[in-house]
Amino acid sequence: MSSLVTARNVSKSFGNVRAVDNVSFDIEKGKIMGLFGPNGAGKTTLLKAVLGLTDCEGSLSVLGLDPFKQRKELMQNICFIADVAVLPRWIKVAQLLDFMESVHPNFSRPRAEDLLSRTKVRIDAKVGELSKGMVTQLHLSIITAIDAKLLVLDEPTLGLDIIFRKEFYSNLLNDYFDGERTILITTHQVEEIENLMTDIMFINDGRILLDSSMEALPDTFMELITSGENADKARQFGPIYERDVFGKKVMTFEGVDPENLEGLGEPHTPSVADLFVAKVKGAAA
């Protein structure tokens, strides 16, 4: 497997605050990596470092390039949607396509026009006249028409209604993702991309709490719904997090042999959202 992104001991400080603190990870080709963290965890800073928008300490290689020093070369093969609002409001859709065609060597105008024809976005409309959902459709169509190796999405569906959000991810999978391309995505709406991701990474206080493939999660993590004496017994195996639900205890275990917990309650694999809370709160406790 070739590694598209390789980070070794990457750090970035703003004054005394270490936004990213000695982080190491790899993203391999063909993966859809979800990056999660609370607000201010360092997600956006890490993405910016990957995109070459900010410099950092340590060694970071994206597509074999130094993202900060070789940003122009990198951007020929990376796309990103940082937030729904970034397309300039004054530009017309046709102008945007003209511009992309003239500056981006890997942009296919016919493909973009084809993708747009399936939406309500008119070619002669101004971005400022489009609804938020349509702007995102436009942005995704443009990005999808770029033959890029890595797509970085930072809260791409923020502020969109559920229909546009669902459509966004289905278009992303159907039109963009082909197994060759790689996606790095952050969002607060974890549930919506849970079935889409192949890999997952949690970050908090600038440090990585979890870096795993989705397949490996059930082997590592288990959630147990239990109560009374069983709860006390289960607690001896060191749950990383415990919460109360309708008078019962829900415990999250990491790397505990399921046999040990047998008969102590209802076991199941935690959802990514629950796992996220368990890891973040558990680490804080």
């Binding site: 609002a85 970034v86 500056v103």
Partner: peptide, 17 residues
């Protein structure tokens, strides 16, 4: 203006120095 309306993030996502 490009910083004010945040379009700078879009422009900087393109292969232009």
């Amino acid at each position: 203006a490009e910083r004010k309306n945040k379009s700078i993030l879009f422009w900087r996502s393109l292969p232009i120095t």
